[in-house]
């Protein structure tokens, strides 16, 4: 049974206040804090000047720093927002940045269904009431390149606790928005749309698993999965599904888009694993995209098991043959 948390006749703040303004409410009230946050944002995004300032009007977020961080060089904001795989906007790396501007990610809600005590439609505002924190994670794409990105979000476990999954729930499935009029890539049968992903419930509950609403101190740009996306740093990037509109809890392993498209290439787990090659390339090394120039750009670095997060997550897979469950 699906309970709507509000009927269409009930007006909420969201109906009278533009979402962006709402998200900025604290900054509006506390001008001083906003200035500080913007300054921090400028620092985080490095010396890529004009573009960082261009994106700044999207609104700075208020968040706490978290212990999940790294001393590795951060990918410049400019690079993280112009080199994206988001096939709903086209298959070239620059398509999302060029075309995602037409997406209107507001108002936004997530439909939660399946084996949970509190199914329903959750407005983004409700979810944004979580304490936001910044986590600097490595992102390893299945295509053997990687970035280091400062995400802002809240633990997925907080959302799970909120909806109270039943004891029988073993998996979580996610779906991306399907809106052809704003997502031109959906015209082509590149994948079986809408995009869907999934995790085992214990993976979803792992403290590393993040629901991100921002990056580099501000709201997520559309091409990076606005307004809310998953970040699972020990898995290949495509597991970190963007622009989520549905979350379903079930006792069966959910279907996932890339697995349906090419099961021999993309497994359900898709943990970063240097020992298990993709059928078309080795996963042993990766190219780090962090703004380095000159000859350094040609260097590759070793890929770490679970993308360097083995201490946190390896125990989830005890006794499993990771070559079989790739």
């Amino acid at each position: 049974m699906l309970l709507k948390h509000r009927t269409p006749l009930t007006l909420t703040d969201n109906d009278v206040t533009p979402h962006r303004v709402y998200l900025n409410r604290r900054n509006l009230m506390l001008g001083g804090i906003a200035t500080t946050a913007l300054a921090a944002c400028g620092e985080a995004s490095g010396d890529d000047g004009p573009s960082a300032t261009q994106a700044a009007p999207k609104g700075a977020l208020e968040y706490a720093k978290s212990a999940y961080t790294t001393s590795e060089t951060q990918t410049p904001f400019e690079q993280a927002t112009t080199y994206n795989n988001y096939y709903e906007f086209g298959t070239s790396k620059t398509d999302p940045a060029a075309r995602a501007g037409q997406l209107v990610p507001e108002p936004w809600s997530i439909k939660v269904s399946g084996l949970v005590g509190k199914p329903g439609v959750y407005d983004l505002e409700t979810l944004m009431k979580q304490q936001l924190e910044e986590r600097i994670y490595r992102l390893r794409c299945v295509e053997a390149w990687s970035m280091v990105i400062p995400w802002i979000g809240f633990p997925m476990s907080a959302l799970i606790d909120m909806v109270e999954p039943l004891g029988s729930a073993k998996y979580v499935g996610f779906k991306t928005l399907y809106r052809p009029e704003q997502m031109p890539g959906l015209r082509y049968p590149i994948l079986d749309w809408p995009y869907e992903e999934g995790l085992r419930l214990d993976e979803a509950r792992n403290p590393l698993t993040l629901m991100a609403v921002g990056m580099y101190g501000q709201l997520l740009p559309n091409q990076n999965g606005a307004p809310i996306r998953l970040v699972v740093p020990w898995k290949y990037g495509f597991k970190s599904i963007k622009s989520i509109v549905e979350i379903a809890f079930s006792d069966e392993q959910p279907a996932t888009s890339w697995n349906k498209s090419a099961p021999q290439e993309y497994g359900f787990y898709s943990n970063v694993n240097p020992a298990v090659s993709h059928p078309r390339w080795s996963q042993a090394t990766e190219r780090r995209l962090d703004g380095r120039g000159g000859l350094a750009m040609l260097t590759r670095q070793e890929t770490l098991p679970f993308n360097g997060y083995a201490d946190e997550v390896a125990s989830l897979y005890d006794g499993m043959d990771l070559a079989k469950f790739y």
Partner: peptide, 17 residues
């Protein structure tokens, strides 16, 4: 340009690829 350490924006974020 790239090998001299100068930017070549036309080659994008991942010039090798």
């Amino acid at each position: 340009l790239l090998l001299q350490g100068q930017p070549a924006p036309a080659l994008g974020v991942n010039p090798v690829q």
